[in-house]
Write a protein that binds this DNA or RNA. Sequence first.
DNA 1: TGAAATGTTGGGGCG
DNA 2: ACGCCCCAACATTTC
Length: 476
Amino acid sequence: MQKEISKEISIVWFRQDLRISDNPAITSAAEAGKILPIYIFDDCAPKLYQTGSVSKLWLSHSLEKLNTTLDKKLNLYVGNASKIIAELIKKHKIKKIFWNKCYEPWHIDQELLVKKICDQADIKWKIFNSNYLWSPKDILKDDGSYYKVFTAYKNKAKTIKARACLAKTPKLDCVKDTANKTKLTDLNLIPDHPWHQKIEKLWEVGEDAAHDKVEFFIENHLSGYKHGRDYPAKAQTSLLSPHLHFGEITPAQILDSISSFAELTASNIDIEHFLSELIWREFSVYLLHHFNTLHKDNFNQKFNNFGWTTNNTTLLKAWKKGKTGYPFIDAGMRQLWQTGYMHNRVRMVVASFLVKNLGIHWHKGEDWFWDCLVDADLANNSASWQWVAGCGVDAAPYFRIFNPTTQGEKFDADGEYTREFVPELKNLPDKYLFEPWTAPEQVLKAAGVELGKTYPRPIVDLAETRNRALESYKGL
DNA sequence: TGAAATGTTGGGGCG
DNA sequence: ACGCCCCAACATTTC
């Protein structure tokens, strides 16, 4: 059989590393010569592992940007990764294959198969950790076991040299697999309904956008981050999570930008806190690595027979749609639905509400976030849901139950955030904004609010559900 | 990276 | 002036 591409080339297998800078797989492949850059969208994966709807949207745009960066040489495929790579090996004169490590169980399964195929065909493969500061296997307790307490993990991690970012982005000599006719649209990533247009307008996708965002964040929002990050109406969080998930930027690059920023005004407290948030991301993937069913199984097995419901569709639906009758919750859930994102503080509050007040299994929340978030990430999502539910690693104690009213009053005191996403309440005075059912009839009327019609009454009683949750906890 | 219940303290109204 | 009560405003404990 005639080889379609005559010169020896290396495959770079892109997955969640959709960038060319600080990409060791690319850099090593470039040193070896010509590159066949590939991305394989696996549409046969089990449902649990399939890319969420909003993530698909991001992925589509990110692949488009990457393709542009690669001078339109990105080769797209749909199907099973090992089969497709096996075919490529047969068809072309492939010398080596490079990729950056992913930690999702299905990615690991894929990697094993690909390694096997390469070994059989006598093709060298090389894998890099590039998407994280530390490799999960490098941070262990003295007895060889892994950390289950965040602070201990963080302290240990800080004693180990973090991955440094690559200084130079190589010149690339990419080749196109001309026999392959798969186009981006063949991946079917853009949903058929119109809600995605608002999301597309809100986000700049891709490697360049990620770097712009880092610069902007450092310049404008790093100073005061520790305090400001808790207020959803302030744009003080970095918004880097989707870029990090898709590997459009690496944490090493972010740290590099911070340390080399010329006029850094942020205090050490702010920088430390931001670093600590990045380390939470490291900790999540670390836990997934050491407990690879984190997305399915309660880390703390005591919770295996806990009485979470999985079939109350009425309550679940109200939560998903942002119609719980608790304005702060509803604002968060609608922000998620409309923008593909939810502020971190509000994520904790809505998650606590689902699991503790509504008594619904954290898997239901995990699934919804997975489908709706632009930054949906298996490790972060499962670790965080387990953390809130109380069954996770170093988890919030079960009795720590957020009160949506109090949280709203504390962190959205002037109601700016809540009014944006729950506009039917925007004319209510601050005093009643988070508890419209306590407002006198005439106040409601003046604000144009009709409970049960223009805005729902609370779907559950807070005190009652809280006490029920506490009772269940005692049973553990 | 809570909230509610309970306990303590101290200032002011008042008999 | 004094003791008593009330009740914020904190502080501590409990879930």
